[in-house]
Design a binder for these strands. Structure first.
Lengths: 189, 189
DNA sequence: AACACAGCGTACCGTGTGGTACAGTGAACC
DNA sequence: GGTTCACTGTACCACACGGTACGCTGTGTT
């Protein structure tokens, strides 16, 4: 259950397999076989099946956090980020993200805290930057939230349709809308 | 397996229960007990566990389709639709939608065809209306797609945070961006 | 009265589940 | 050479699973 090299290797492989085939309705034995080990080993390293799922969720969270880095503000920066997200090599990982998200929405064990940060973590750095740039606090939050929603919504679209060109056009339209001048109403409460 | 009143009652109750507690990792027996029947009856009416899940997915699809009605174009109309979606009584149903969506992304049996229509069905009527209003074809598609993404993205946000006010502010910001004049660049390929 | 038939419950089957017991490995350290 | 310790395979457990066999209702038909 503690850290170890063997455990890390198994976890890495488990996340890979979960990305490709989902995670929730795979049995310990199925996962173990796919990873080239025995279900006994997964119990040894992760304590229980649920322990394994929790570890996988945490690892997915960690990677998501790691991929955040600096926040996008300009249209060009945002577009570069979208292009990275739309890369086919990330599809499996993104499917896994939405699978875990939906499990968390249903309150499945091991996903506690996932939702708390699923929105906040992405919004707050963007918001801070915008406030620093002189944008009103409430406007900044709404804008950050909208940007996140556009990204995730288009990602859902992309995963379902595979239409990179179409979703990217929609994303570009969004950045165009944002880049219009004088979008902030000064007569605001 | 065929239609019947008893089957309809069970299906209705099953969708309700699936909305409240998810569907994928409930056993036949759990569902049956919650519905006040026996797992034998679910097999009788739906043929198998998978048959039940398929029926539930179809019913959720049907309701989604039914709720489409006329398409939103003006900001006020869109806002009215968002308010309806944001109503707490729909949360459970929306959670179920995203659960099924993620299952479909992983290719689970019974979800075939769900994704094909998950985007197209919502986009095309909006697109038609916009084309009728003289908007360029590709622009219309991008706009419809963006609107759907905003809706679903903010719905994900709302389900995770429960922050109706915040997500609604973000939605309003989006409609403001849309309602700005001269957003269409005539010098377009 | 005899039958048909949709609806339903009980008891059961074989199978796969998550988890445990226990007996090893092989390398590291003393 | 002995001991420790992380790691792993085999065999097993009790249990819940999806599904089936079979028999019992009630209602409507002939």
């Amino acid at each position: 259950m503690a850290d170890s090299q063997a455990r890390d290797r198994l976890l890495y492989a488990a996340v890979q397999h979960a990305s490709d085939h989902g995670i929730a309705d795979l049995s310990l034995r199925e996962i173990a076989a796919a990873l080239g080990t025995s279900h006994r080993m997964l119990i040894y390293h992760f304590g229980s099946r649920e322990g394994l799922l929790v570890a996988v969720v945490r690892e997915v969270e960690r990677r998501e956090r790691e991929s955040l880095g600096a926040a996008p503000l300009s249209g060009a920066d945002a577009r570069r980020r979208w292009d990275r997200l739309a890369d086919p090599s990330l599809r499996a990982q993104e499917r896994l993200f939405f699978e875990i998200y939906s499990h968390a929405l249903l309150g499945r064990p091991g996903t506690e805290g996932f939702l708390d940060e699923a929105v906040e973590r992405w919004i707050s750095p963007v918001k801070e930057l915008m406030i620093g740039a002189g944008i009103d606090d409430e406007d900044a939050e709404a804008l950050a939230r909208l940007g996140l929603a556009v990204t995730r919504g288009l990602l859902l679209d992309l995963l379902a349709t595979g239409d990179t060109a179409g979703t990217t056009r929609a994303f570009d339209l969004f950045t165009q809308l944002l880049d219009q001048p004088s979008r902030h109403d000064p007569s605001h409460g």
